[in-house]
Amino acid sequence: MEPTIYTNDIVLCEHVTKSIMRGDIVIACSTNDPTVNVCKRVLAIAGDIIHMGGREMMIPTGYIWLQGDNLYNSTDSRNYGPIPLGLVRGRVLAKVWPLSKFTLFDKNPNLKP
Protein backbone atom coordinates (compact mmCIF):
# COMPACT_ATOMS: atom_id res chain seq x y z
CA MET A 1 0.00 0.00 0.00
CA GLU A 2 2.97 2.37 -0.44
CA PRO A 3 3.00 5.40 -0.47
CA THR A 4 -0.17 5.56 1.69
CA ILE A 5 0.88 2.99 4.30
CA TYR A 6 4.39 1.58 4.66
CA THR A 7 5.56 -1.66 6.24
CA ASN A 8 5.50 -1.54 10.09
CA ASP A 9 3.19 1.50 10.19
CA ILE A 10 0.40 1.19 12.77
CA VAL A 11 -3.18 1.87 11.70
CA LEU A 12 -6.46 2.28 13.56
CA CYS A 13 -9.14 -0.11 12.31
CA GLU A 14 -12.85 -0.44 13.04
CA HIS A 15 -14.99 -3.57 12.77
CA VAL A 16 -18.45 -1.97 13.08
CA THR A 17 -19.28 -0.67 9.60
CA LYS A 18 -20.81 -3.30 7.41
CA SER A 19 -21.08 -1.09 4.32
CA ILE A 20 -17.81 -0.96 2.42
CA MET A 21 -17.51 1.79 -0.16
CA ARG A 22 -15.25 2.41 -3.12
CA GLY A 23 -12.00 4.03 -2.03
CA ASP A 24 -12.04 2.65 1.53
CA ILE A 25 -8.88 1.01 2.81
CA VAL A 26 -9.68 -2.38 4.36
CA ILE A 27 -7.87 -5.17 6.16
CA ALA A 28 -8.87 -8.58 4.86
CA CYS A 29 -7.76 -12.18 5.27
CA SER A 30 -5.69 -13.38 2.35
CA THR A 31 -7.43 -15.87 0.08
CA ASN A 32 -4.23 -17.86 -0.39
CA ASP A 33 -3.36 -18.25 3.29
CA PRO A 34 -5.86 -17.83 6.18
CA THR A 35 -3.07 -16.86 8.60
CA VAL A 36 -2.10 -13.75 6.60
CA ASN A 37 -3.93 -10.40 6.53
CA VAL A 38 -3.67 -7.94 3.67
CA CYS A 39 -4.29 -4.19 3.63
CA LYS A 40 -5.66 -2.88 0.32
CA ARG A 41 -7.93 -0.24 -1.16
CA VAL A 42 -11.42 -1.17 -2.37
CA LEU A 43 -11.52 -0.26 -6.05
CA ALA A 44 -14.92 -1.67 -6.97
CA ILE A 45 -17.93 -3.17 -5.21
CA ALA A 46 -20.65 -5.57 -6.37
CA GLY A 47 -22.19 -4.55 -9.67
CA ASP A 48 -19.25 -2.44 -10.87
CA ILE A 49 -17.47 -3.23 -14.10
CA ILE A 50 -13.68 -3.66 -14.14
CA HIS A 51 -11.49 -3.53 -17.23
CA MET A 52 -8.78 -6.15 -17.09
CA GLY A 53 -6.41 -6.84 -19.96
CA GLY A 54 -8.89 -5.70 -22.60
CA ARG A 55 -11.74 -7.68 -21.04
CA GLU A 56 -14.70 -6.36 -19.07
CA MET A 57 -15.67 -8.13 -15.87
CA MET A 58 -18.58 -7.50 -13.52
CA ILE A 59 -18.06 -7.92 -9.78
CA PRO A 60 -20.59 -10.53 -8.56
CA THR A 61 -22.91 -9.93 -5.57
CA GLY A 62 -21.13 -10.21 -2.22
CA TYR A 63 -17.66 -9.65 -3.68
CA ILE A 64 -15.30 -6.64 -3.80
CA TRP A 65 -12.25 -5.78 -5.88
CA LEU A 66 -9.09 -4.90 -3.91
CA GLN A 67 -6.02 -3.20 -5.29
CA GLY A 68 -2.89 -1.83 -3.62
CA ASP A 69 -1.86 1.80 -4.11
CA ASN A 70 1.59 0.66 -5.29
CA LEU A 71 0.29 -0.61 -8.62
CA TYR A 72 3.61 -1.91 -9.91
CA ASN A 73 4.38 -4.08 -6.88
CA SER A 74 1.19 -5.37 -5.33
CA THR A 75 -0.40 -8.80 -5.15
CA ASP A 76 -4.11 -8.07 -5.23
CA SER A 77 -7.35 -8.81 -7.04
CA ARG A 78 -5.50 -8.57 -10.36
CA ASN A 79 -3.86 -11.87 -9.33
CA TYR A 80 -6.61 -13.66 -7.42
CA GLY A 81 -9.81 -11.99 -8.65
CA PRO A 82 -12.60 -10.46 -6.57
CA ILE A 83 -12.74 -11.55 -2.91
CA PRO A 84 -15.87 -12.30 -0.82
CA LEU A 85 -17.00 -9.57 1.62
CA GLY A 86 -16.90 -12.12 4.42
CA LEU A 87 -13.09 -12.00 4.34
CA VAL A 88 -13.02 -8.28 5.26
CA ARG A 89 -11.85 -7.85 8.87
CA GLY A 90 -12.32 -4.09 9.17
CA ARG A 91 -11.96 -0.63 7.70
CA VAL A 92 -8.82 1.41 8.30
CA LEU A 93 -9.62 4.79 9.91
CA ALA A 94 -6.24 6.42 10.40
CA LYS A 95 -2.53 5.91 10.34
CA VAL A 96 -1.35 6.51 13.92
CA TRP A 97 2.35 5.54 13.83
CA PRO A 98 4.81 7.12 13.00
CA LEU A 99 3.21 10.14 14.72
CA SER A 100 4.76 12.63 12.29
CA LYS A 101 2.87 10.93 9.43
CA PHE A 102 -0.52 10.86 11.23
CA THR A 103 -3.31 10.80 8.61
CA LEU A 104 -7.05 10.33 8.78
CA PHE A 105 -8.48 8.28 5.94
CA ASP A 106 -11.91 9.96 6.15
CA LYS A 107 -11.70 11.72 2.81
CA ASN A 108 -12.70 9.18 0.22
CA PRO A 109 -10.81 9.69 -3.04
CA ASN A 110 -13.63 7.77 -4.73
CA LEU A 111 -11.57 6.16 -7.43
CA LYS A 112 -13.49 5.30 -10.56
CA PRO A 113 -13.08 1.73 -11.79
Partner: peptide
Amino acid sequence: LHDVSRGDVVSLFSPKDP
Protein backbone atom coordinates in the same frame (compact mmCIF):
# COMPACT_ATOMS: atom_id res chain seq x y z
CA LEU B 1 -5.74 -22.70 15.38
CA HIS B 2 -6.32 -23.55 11.68
CA ASP B 3 -7.14 -27.16 12.49
CA VAL B 4 -9.61 -28.07 9.73
CA SER B 5 -9.42 -31.47 8.11
CA ARG B 6 -11.30 -33.41 5.47
CA GLY B 7 -14.72 -34.58 6.70
CA ASP B 8 -15.22 -31.92 9.40
CA VAL B 9 -18.59 -30.20 9.64
CA VAL B 10 -17.94 -26.45 9.67
CA SER B 11 -19.96 -23.24 9.75
CA LEU B 12 -18.91 -20.52 7.34
CA PHE B 13 -19.99 -17.18 5.91
CA SER B 14 -21.59 -17.57 2.51
CA PRO B 15 -19.24 -16.15 -0.15
CA LYS B 16 -22.25 -14.67 -1.95
CA ASP B 17 -23.80 -12.94 1.06
CA PRO B 18 -21.67 -12.06 4.12
